[in-house]
Computed example of a mutant assay.
Amino acid sequence: MKKSYTILAIIAIIVVAIYVMLPKERFAETVFPLGDGAKVSAFDDNAAGGTSAVQFKASDSLTSFQCALGTDEKKPTWCGLVFDFDPAGEKKFHNWKNVDTLYMDLDIAGTDEILVKVWTYDPDVTDLQKSNTFKMLLKEVPVKTGRNKIAIPFEHFYIPNFWYDDLGVKRSKNRLHHESVARVEISAGWKQPRGKNFVVNVREIFASGISNTAYGIFLFMILGLMIVAIGRSHPVKEYDEKN
């Protein structure tokens, strides 16, 4: 019996060693330039009575966005860019379950902070007809004037308290649902001055992560180890019962 456990322990060490040596295959999924069916657009607060002014232009290689938040303190202010994977509302979401980093290559002027939001579909909360019911994953990103190459670890995104409060959603519903990403948004930082133009020119955005192939091989080997362990221990158990 001790010999069997020793053999299994050696096999387990070998399996773990092989897993450590397996190449970690990275993948990248493009947000911009746009993939099939995706759409980029700008938004502002005008429909809600705001007076923010937006200029927007998109080509295959560059998206240019400029905004000045409205100066009337009594009116709401917001504006930004959104890269929508499912503009037709057909649940053509992207699976970012294995994504560990969001990369952005941007030209910035007129601001020292942007808000990056990843919106995901939560079947318990989301109404496809109401964009704000998608789950907001938020990250504040400091920026400088000029070109910014940004890498945001996906674990740094969080669900803000105001999203729960605005929708009346219980905080227990805190799954990120990053297996169903609907869109990526860039907007002005929290302290952006009213009336001041800020510019975001997008060169490239992509998500990157590690393929689960290596994990699958590792799990398959563990399963094989378990089968061997059960197979070797079962006959011993039967012999003990007879004697």
Rank of each mutant, 00 (worst) to 15 (best):
R147G: 03
L138P: 00
T111I: 04
Q66I: 10
K237P: 05
C67Q: 11
T30M: 15
K74T: 15
V236W: 07
M136Y: 10
R26I: 09
D36F: 11
V236G: 10
V15Y: 00
S187C: 08
S233R: 14
V169L: 03
K135F: 08
L167K: 03
T71V: 13
I7D: 05
S208Q: 13
P123V: 13
G231H: 05
K57M: 12
P23C: 02
T111G: 02
K170D: 11
L8H: 04
P142M: 00
V200C: 00
D44M: 04
I10D: 08
Y215N: 15
N148P: 08
D112I: 03
G209D: 06
E179L: 02
Y5Q: 14
L167N: 01
D60F: 06
K196V: 13
E113M: 15
P23F: 11
A48Y: 05
Y239K: 12
I18W: 12
L128G: 01
I14Q: 09
S59M: 01
Q129T: 14
Y19H: 14
P153L: 13
K57H: 11
H177N: 15
F206Y: 15
T126N: 11
P235D: 02
S59V: 06
S61T: 11
A182N: 15
W190T: 12
H156C: 08
F83S: 10
L34C: 05
K139Q: 15
D112N: 14
G49R: 09
E113G: 12
M104C: 07
S61V: 07
Y103D: 04
L138M: 11
K57Q: 15
R175M: 10
S233I: 04
F198W: 03
G189S: 07
E25D: 13
D122Q: 14
F220S: 15
K149P: 02
E140I: 02
I7Y: 13
D36Q: 13
V125L: 09
F162L: 04
A12R: 10
N174Y: 11
I13L: 15
F27L: 09
D122R: 05
H156D: 12
A188T: 10
I205N: 00
V184T: 09
K91W: 01
E185R: 00
D36E: 15
S4Y: 14
K135A: 10
I114S: 06
H177V: 05
G209C: 10
V20Q: 06
I14E: 06
